[in-house]
Design a protein around this nucleic acid. Structure first.
Lengths: 212, 212
DNA sequence: TGTACATCAGTGAACGCGCGTTCACTGATGTAC
DNA sequence: TGTACATCAGTGAACGCGCGTTCACTGATGTAC
């Protein structure tokens, strides 16, 4: 019955003896992730997060203000984790296969973290102006774009406009992830996803635009 | 202040004088759509739908059982409307351009009906076994697939497995729609969406797979 | 055409629930001297 | 090394809220004869 405490507990983030917690901010983020994964976005509440961190209902306000604040932190952390996964896939793969590997990592992350991935895009529930959130989101996209363009221009410095093949490829992986999560592709064999990722890679490199 | 009643009202679906409503089922579906469009999925409640239809809080139970039942009906109607849009785009367009036109219609529908489109895929909130819902969803996909395959085999009769280019193309439009709705493409010019749809069309016809 | 009656589609008050947030408070921590 | 004190990070009881659902009821409708 208390099984849901395991993750937060095993990370040593439930309040121990003292009056002060020590790392409540992180404990609440982990607790929120736990709730999302177990019960989905519908099942989330600030009180439940406080409960799992072993703390009174008023405590979270000190760190996040309100529920929106906590969820925004969760989303930001989600994008950071996604970025790490994508970066890992990128550096471990020769340039020619990079985009496909990144796409596969994107898909894997989304499927493993369904409800968290979902909330990362639910702007209604987030503080859309939070700089950490925005930065993390851009960083993740950057990894993808860099691999597609196969040059090392640092994109983050100046605003620029990504071109159609990159957007098309991103939309394709993203759509594949969402349709899978939403159960719309239950009848489609796993193998097909691999083929879709190949097509995605080709699109990202302009294989279609350059005269087919 | 009562502005939100307009749609349901102007459709003549608010209870008039009598004890019985006459068409409460449809009135509730319209009211639910209104709420979703105005307040998003978070703002939806069964009581509010009843309120807008001019009926007591217990009334919806007679027609839908619970909130899930009503939302499922909304989602089913959403897919029916989507299917109509896609069919319209298909029949009004020469075969060569059909997939692109359908993709554009898909995107337009999604953007016009953001929160409703969102809920159509939120299986947590729906009765996933509802036959009307399932049928409407399949019918919409069928229009897309038929155009991509450019033959007239009726797909609905026997279960079959769509192949990678069709799934890839669908994922691409779907992803484009969701990323746009979620504000992730705010910096991308509208023109780019048109180019993405062209790429989508090429992919759906196997332009990439057939040796590039 | 009239009457009895079953069925249907509503009412509206009441219930218990968990939520987010507030607030006066208090225990722990860290810093100045 | 010791003491005073400000600041910080918690408590926990209380608030009001809107929700979904229930239930005994009642008015309207339609059908049988």
């Amino acid at each position: 019955m208390k099984k849901h405490l395991n993750t937060v507990k095993s990370a040593g983030l439930v309040k121990r003896g003292g009056y002060h917690h020590g790392d409540l901010r992180n404990a609440l983020i982990l607790a929120a992730e736990e709730i999302l994964q177990e019960r989905g976005a519908t099942g989330f509440s600030l009180r439940e997060a406080a409960r799992r961190a072993g703390v009174s209902p008023g405590a979270p306000a000190h760190h996040f203000g309100d529920a929106r604040g906590l969820l925004t932190a969760v989303a930001a952390r989600g994008f950071k984790r996604l970025e790490e996964e994508l970066s890992g896939a990128s550096t471990n793969t020769p340039p020619a296969d990079r985009v496909r590997a990144i796409g596969a990592a994107y898909l894997t992350f989304a499927l493993k973290n369904g409800p968290i991935f979902g909330i990362m895009w639910l702007r209604d529930l987030l503080d859309q102006t939070d700089p950490e959130y925005l930065k993390a989101g851009r960083a993740a996209f950057n990894v993808f774009e860099q691999a597609a363009l196969e040059r090392n221009v640092p994109v983050a410095t100046a605003p620029h406009v990504p071109d159609a093949p990159v957007i098309a490829a991103w939309a394709m992986v993203h759509g594949l992830a969402r349709l899978t999560l939403d159960g719309a592709l239950d009848a489609v064999p796993l193998d097909t996803r691999g083929q879709v990722l190949k097509l995605m890679s080709a699109v990202s490199h302009g294989a279609v635009a350059k005269e087919c």
